[in-house]
Design a protein around this nucleic acid. Sequence first.
RNA 1: GCGAGAGUGGCGGAACUGGCAGACGCGCUGGACUUAGGAUCCAGUGGGCAACCCAUGGGGGUUCAACUCCCCCCUCUCGCACCA
Length: 847
Amino acid sequence: MAYGKSHGIKGGNLMSDRYEPHIIEKKWQTIWEEKRVFEVKKDINKKKYYLLEMFPYPSGKIHMGHVRNYSIGDVTARFLKMKGLNVLHPMGWDAFGMPAENAAIQHGTHPAKWTRENISYMKTQLKQMGLSYDWTREIATCTPDYYKWNQWFFLKMYEKRLAYKKESYVNWCPKCETVLANEQVIEGLCWRCDSTVEKRNLNQWFLKITAYAEELLTDLDKLNGWPERVVTMQRNWIGRSIGAEVDFPVEGSNERLKIFTTRPDTLFGTTFMSIAPENPMVEKLIEVRGLPLNASIRGKESEIRRFFEKIKKQDRSARTEALLEKEGVFTGSYCINPLTNTKIPIYIANFVLMEYGTGVVMAVPAHDQRDFEFAKKYNLPVKIVIQPPDIKLNEDTITEAYVDEGVLVNSGQFSGINNRDAMDAIVKHLEEKGIGKKSISYKLKDWGISRQRYWGCPIPIIYCDSCGIVPVPYEKLPVILPEDVKFTGAGSSPLAQSPEFIQTRCPRCGSNSAKRETDTMDTFVDSSWYFLKYTSPAGDTLPFDKDEAGYWMPVDQYIGGIEHAVLHLLYSRFFTKVIRDTGLTSIDEPFTNLLTQGMVIKDGAKMSKSKGNVVDPDDLINKYGADTARLFSLFAAPPEKDLEWSDEGVEGSYRFLNRVWRLAEESKSSGVEELKSKDITPSLLNSQTPQLNQEMNRTIKKVTEDIERFHFNTAIAALMEYLNFLYRYEDKKSELFTEAVGTLVILLSPFAPHISEELWQKMGNKELLANTLWPSYNEDALIKNEVILVIQINGKIRNRLNIPAGSSQKQAEDIAFKGEKIKEWLKDKKIKKVVYVPDKILNLVVE
RNA sequence: GCGAGAGUGGCGGAACUGGCAGACGCGCUGGACUUAGGAUCCAGUGGGCAACCCAUGGGGGUUCAACUCCCCCCUCUCGCACCA
């Protein structure tokens, strides 16, 4: 190890002057905590800044992704604090979730205990990193003080009909007996037990995020501080499309099939209908034909049933795979095209999704590729209703659907109109006849929050035989998650097997036979408003204090992984808008600026246990200290890009800190009593050591501007350059040099706070560096007397000359032409043109 | 397939509105100090043996000047992907 032996210092009594990260890091962490340096209060006289990093799930220990995420945040927080802002920088725990429950099933540890212990350990780790959190604001979502307000929000939404219960098809693992989120289904199998996941129709609680679809979409335009691709992902996820809804009467019945289409102009070309297998209308359609589905299984009906079962087993990702072969089965029923009055068959088709539109599609094979393929497979007619401008399509010869623009044909009164104009015209016609209307459809679905799991927030609902669904009254909140339950891993969730929990009194009629809802909430609910709770964690009359939130919100800078681009970031936006509409806040959007940091990569792959390429932050901190860990994770790559891990690179960062240490040790012995960072007097410096002064100011400027735009890697590079300059500087014993080193220490402090704080103290400063103001630079000091002028001939560099700064073109030319090299190059040449960029370039264009 | 982003030394990466390509770090080479050096310090380090030329995925173009702007192509990453 690098510090295993003395650095050329002989004898043992100078050992204390070595850079020993562990001793000083512990020392300063204790001091910061004792002096409450990072605790903040609302102060309307100070400009606030709310800096937030995504809080971690307490899985056991922190990983390198956390180190990176929190280092990025900490640089920013410390920098802005030193700039004089009132910086709120909190941390907490996304503490509900499946892994805790798995631990309970596998090792018999109670999820609460497991989670508490993990939080305790990870908190120690975060403290070891020297992060500038206001720990008095720490929250854990698994505490009743916190999740009570999840339930409160749920009740508010229930009142506003934004929380509702409905039946829907969900991913169901028969072995775990629980619902799985789409992302927990891997190639059709359960992520935990590899069972084949089924679709099951279940009664579940939903939050009506679609009620805010339009605002969530339009407000994306306000998010100028977000990466464009995150905005795009959310826009795609919301997936707004404009079209029309049209009713198709079912032949021989009073039923109607309502379809949604973005192409009302092709309505005349509809030659059959496609319906989703899950669509409740399917049963009725078969009844229309006189064959109820629950009758004996034979003939045509069993064919439908088999098809049905096959489709249900396909998970959604397979269903929506574009390469999936189109399959279907005829229901036996027909409906009537309301515009042409022709009879068209109704098919069940695997590619039609119940969740989108109305779950029924009008099929226009001539102008939709899917419908075309389906029609070819089942020999259904193709009817062309749009002719392109250049060629003429023929129904018998076309090999693919024509989806572009053209003129309508075979479309009754609309024939001859351009299809774009026909869209509006046909919709208007439908509305007049009362068989359709303009409609907007979204891909965004309501948010299913029911989880058949224990370790989550109970949904505050009671079921009463006589009163039905009864919300738990506000004054009875929180519905406490009971701890004395059994974890068998089999059967339904522990809550559903706990009679003490289930059995309750109906709040409305007082009946003793009422039952509690045993599903818990998706943990994304917890994280959808935690940023608001940080503003007033202790309050218990409302979810959070209006004034505090009014001062601190919105979050000025949010930092986290791209994996939450849609889910967490969309849910939080939704919650913020709902909360605004309850009157608790006035903000529309929670996060003004978003930074999505890249992954930490090793050997070309994301760090993971299965790949065996994990670097444990504990090892790193034990070996080099937190400052090195922080520095490397900031230096190796810009924040938003992936970071390739390099053990040698870590050594380099460690080496740099040692060099800083040694330089400070050397200059310290000059005997300067105290430094005052703001007392740098340019005139004095200028007269004595202009270059030192210039470098110092140049570095202040560079580091400041780079931190402001999150270019931490180049900021650190500038510090390294500055250090190299100081090393080469001869007069290391002067007072001015000590000041220059002091500046280095200040500028380094957001990145490597412990070593900086220690050196700052060693230099004789009484005030904590963390509380010191960030230095400003002197513009005058940046002005150079001499600049290097590059002389080009025909754009190629032929010489470099020192010339006085601000020279005119004439002066520059005079100097340039005197140079022997240039004379040689210009021999026998005629100058056609001269381009002069002051203080930079003189380009001579010759024949 | 659609959309977005990226392609620069042996490696990670610099280069703000076109103006010295390769900052800084790693690695490598040589030297110093050393019993020793995997510590530290100094020097060097894109390629072609030098003057000079060639180099920012490839090919064109604009310009006095292009990593940067325009057109075509290739590769990679990410997102979306039967959404009616």
